[in-house]
């Protein structure tokens, strides 16, 4: 199951989607807390990854940072989202 949420005011902007996966090496990481930070680094939302280490959010075009915390370690990724699908992979590594 892929978790989904929508970022936006009023009608969801479903044209800008960010399917995400969190991995440690080749393994998906379920139960990771993934925080969405805006271009200024401010907290915007947080979700927990599904059993397959995935989730998806719908956001506005722009620059976002994804910060993942998990039992397997932490990691982050940045994305310049455009309209359409913006695949993002976050790799976590033990500190």
């Amino acid at each position: 199951m892929t978790q989904e949420y929508t970022l936006g005011c009023g009608a969801p902007d479903q044209d800008t989607a960010l399917p995400l996966s969190v991995r440690s090496g080749d393994e998906p990481v379920p139960g990771a807390y993934v925080r969405l930070l805006d271009a200024t680094g401010e907290f915007t939302a947080e979700v927990v990854t599904s059993a397959g280490g995935q989730f998806r959010f719908f956001a506005a075009p722009g620059n976002w940072t994804l910060r993942a915390l998990s039992r397997a370690g932490n990691g982050d990724a940045t994305v310049s989202a455009e309209r359409g699908l913006n695949q993002v992979a976050v790799t976590v590594t033990a500190a």
Partner: peptide
């Protein structure tokens, strides 16, 4: 900040 400024009405999730 976006809710404060009036750009959003609620956190998305």
């Amino acid at each position: 900040p976006d809710e404060y400024a009036g750009r959003l009405l609620a956190p998305a999730h």
